[in-house]
Amino acid sequence: MRPNLLNLFKANARRGQFRAEANSLFVYDVIVGSDADAEWFGGVSPEAFTRALRAMTGPVSVRINSPGGDVFAGRAMAQAMREYPGEVTAHVDGVAASAASLLAVTPARCVMAPGSMLMIHQAWTIGLGNAGDFRQTADLLAKIDLTIADDYAAKSGRPAQEFAALMAAETWFTPAQAIAMGLADEIAADLRAARPEAGVEARWDLSAYSHAPNTAFDPSLADADVARIAAQIVLQLDARQTPAPAPDPIAHRRRQLAARLLAPTA
Rank of each mutant, 00 (worst) to 15 (best):
M1I: 07
R2I: 03
N4E: 15
L6V: 01
L8S: 03
L8R: 06
K10H: 05
A11Q: 11
N12T: 07
R14L: 06
F18K: 05
A20S: 07
E21S: 03
A22H: 09
A22F: 06
S24R: 10
Y28R: 15
V32T: 15
G33W: 03
E39P: 00
W40D: 05
G42C: 09
G42S: 08
G43N: 03
P46D: 11
E47Y: 07
A48H: 08
F49I: 13
F49R: 09
F49V: 12
R51G: 06
L53T: 12
T57H: 12
S61V: 10
R63L: 07
R63T: 06
I64V: 13
P67V: 14
G69K: 04
R75S: 11
R75Q: 15
A76G: 09
M77F: 04
V88E: 02
V88D: 00
A90N: 14
D93R: 15
A96G: 09
A97W: 15
S98W: 12
S98R: 10
A99C: 11
S101G: 11
L102I: 13
T106W: 05
R109V: 11
C110V: 11
M112R: 01
G115V: 07
L118Y: 01
L118M: 13
M119P: 00
M119Y: 06
T125D: 12
G127K: 01
G127E: 03
G127M: 01
G129M: 11
N130P: 02
N130E: 05
N130L: 08
A131D: 08
G132M: 12
D133P: 05
Q136F: 11
Q136W: 08
A138I: 13
D139G: 09
A142D: 15
K143Y: 09
I144N: 11
L146P: 02
I148C: 05
I148V: 14
I148M: 08
A149M: 04
D150M: 03
Q161T: 03
F163N: 00
A164G: 08
M167H: 00
M167S: 00
A169N: 12
E170K: 08
I179F: 03
L183E: 12
D185Y: 02
L191F: 01
R192P: 00
R192Q: 04
R192Y: 00
A193K: 01
A193Q: 05
A193I: 00
A194V: 01
G199E: 07
V200M: 09
V200W: 01
E201H: 13
W204V: 06
D205H: 11
A208P: 15
A208E: 15
H211S: 12
P213Y: 10
P213L: 14
T215Y: 05
T215E: 07
D218S: 08
P219W: 10
P219G: 14
L221T: 12
V226L: 11
A227K: 12
A230E: 02
A231Y: 00
Q232V: 01
V234H: 00
L237Y: 03
Q241D: 15
A244N: 06
A246C: 03
A246H: 03
P249R: 04
P249A: 02
P249W: 04
R254H: 09
Q256D: 13
A258Y: 06
L261G: 01
L261I: 07
A263I: 01
P264V: 02
